[in-house]
Design a protein around this nucleic acid. Structure first.
Lengths: 332, 332
DNA sequence: ATGAAAGCGCTAACAT
DNA sequence: ATGTTAGCGCTTTCAT
């Protein structure tokens, strides 16, 4: 059997209270402390987090809800969040929700039963009621790469509007006027589209609504939709895909139609995932300061967990346009 | 405050034992049961996993150690494992170890303090001592896509040897004789290399040791190594990369040198990740039955957790060669 | 500085 | 069929 605090106490000839005190770094006589430490070492004793959490202490575990861990952008964030959490002594239990409200609710409930100390809700998180309930019951939460303007909750995200604005401006500066946009059904995409519209308007360009397509099912469906755009009579000379995965689909659809990139079609993505450097040609995209965002999110959450910090923050980080080879001067 | 079993008992006018019995589906009078259920509903009562685990029950949480969740192949597995685990009522706490023995030991120790019910050790897991200790102390473990032949432990993996053999045979059948291989420092790569050697030997072809390079630092370093191979006087006409990520690096290195694929160089990968379909040209690779592997791993683990199943299994699944456009007839 | 004892929320004999 | 009660391993007053 694993040794308990009683075993240590007995071996060290002290009471369990004393052992508990050395575990929690409270005042204990130097000699006794050493003795206890030595016994703990010998017995390879590790206090049970379960038992200590039951008395009101933390579990040092964070619930991390994300749309899909298999998505490269999401996985990249997860790694950052994990590293920062680990630095601060926390572990992550990860749940892929597929952005389904049902799953979100189930996972949150499940994890609360397991007494996680708080939640990070990432990406396309949907279920607002659950967030409201969490806030109501004072459970620490932070939204990552997502935000609900009307909710009093910590959040960290990139300025999607600005990102969309910059990409579009870049495309316009290359001479493009018929610009298509391929988005997904998420708040981030909506912001990016807003940025797109604003940039178009600022330059006095009309937005062709038929070139503004939203893919729900991502991946294959997106490729089909991109294809449709490219098959239309007056096809766009540039397409802004709201994330790199979608951009790859655009590239595939273009390749299938013998369109050269960027000569016949400029393509821009968003997120600056690893993928964007290995496509052919490498992808012009928008970089999010993932590392900073994730660290901040974790820190914000832990702050709320450990100090019951009451003032909520909404942190918005600035994106950076990365120009590669997939965008070029308009040639037709 | 969250309601406890006492609150439910009081409201329902029964003892906590009775409430406990309805929670655990034991025999309880129909009427009382309904009453209790109703109160639980009203109070929105959810039993604390902490407390119940403290009395010897499970935490329904699995520790999942993997090299790096940001790696697409790994993330894909994680998703499968997560889904299957969730189906069976378990959650995952995920830890990226970077295949460092130190981190592996730390995470295992940490998670044991948190009383996870068992471990899945995936991919390039290294620290054998830790596994031995886990087995010694009867902690359920299963190795996924990894195996230590001398350890009595459950494991699920693909037949890497066979995968390597098949890729190589394919390449040879296309007329290639100077075949390079780009591997990583992991047991799976070593098996794939063995398969490679066997295939070469079976066809009476010599293995050029200088074309057998192992990249430790993956990514950029790999690209450099691939470049070196391509710059050598008698460069290989085909390269077998031990995973898709490496294959992409080979493609990039080739592109930089104006080598056309597959005309000037055939490239094959391994894993059949999403990436392999969006490279240009799409990658010939080896598919692992990820879904089956992951489900099996989870099932095996849960079997051991719930029934203390003693007979260990070593499950080896067969890989499948997927021929795409990155490999072609030798032309020089 | 150290220890005795109550209690965290739940389970599992054992009684009734 | 239901209730009483003793833990599970730990923290935390409150004494000493």
């Amino acid at each position: 059997m694993k040794p308990t605090i009683y075993d240590v106490a007995r071996e060290a000839g002290v009471s369990i209270a004393t052992v508990s005190k050395v575990i929690n770094h409270q005042r204990v006589g130097k000699k006794t402390k050493e003795k206890v430490l030595k016994v703990m070492e010998e017995l390879n004793y590790k206090p049970s987090v379960l038992a200590s959490a039951l008395t009101g202490k933390r579990t040092s575990t964070i619930g991390f809800l994300l749309p899909d861990i298999a998505n490269p952008f999401v996985a990249g964030m997860a790694r950052r969040v994990e590293d920062r959490a680990h630095e601060r002594g926390y572990n992550l239990v990860i749940c892929s929700t597929d952005s389904q409200e049902k799953k979100e609710a189930v996972y949150v409930s499940l994890l609360r039963q397991k007494s996680v100390d708080g939640f990070i809700l990432a990406g396309g998180y949907k279920n607002v009621e659950v967030i409201a309930e969490l806030i109501e019951e004072q459970v620490p939460v932070v939204l990552l790469a997502e935000s609900y303007p009307h909710l009093s909750v910590n959040s960290v995200k990139v300025d999607d509007f600005m990102g969309g604005y910059e990409v579009t401006s870049h495309l316009i500066s290359l001479g493009h006027t018929r610009i298509g946009i391929l988005a997904e059904d998420a708040s981030s995409s909506r912001e990016r589209i807003r940025g797109f519209r604003q940039a178009m308007q600022d330059k006095g360009l009309p937005v062709r609504e038929e070139f503004l397509v939203v893919s729900d099912s991502t991946e294959e469906g997106a490729e089909y939709l991109a294809g449709q755009m490219l098959d239309s009579p007056e096809r766009p000379t540039a397409i802004f895909a709201c994330n790199d995965l979608l951009a790859i689909r655009v590239i595939l659809a273009a390749r299938e139609r013998q369109l050269r990139i960027p000569d016949d079609l400029s393509v821009a993505g968003f997120d600056n995932t690893l993928l964007s450097r290995s496509t052919d040609p490498p992808l012009t995209t928008v970089a999010q300061p993932i590392l900073d965002m994730c660290s901040q999110a974790v820190d914000l959450l832990i702050e709320e967990i450990e100090r019951h910090n009451k003032t909520k923050q909404r942190i918005v980080m600035l994106p950076q346009l990365i120009i590669r080879k997939s965008t070029g001067k308009r040639r037709s």
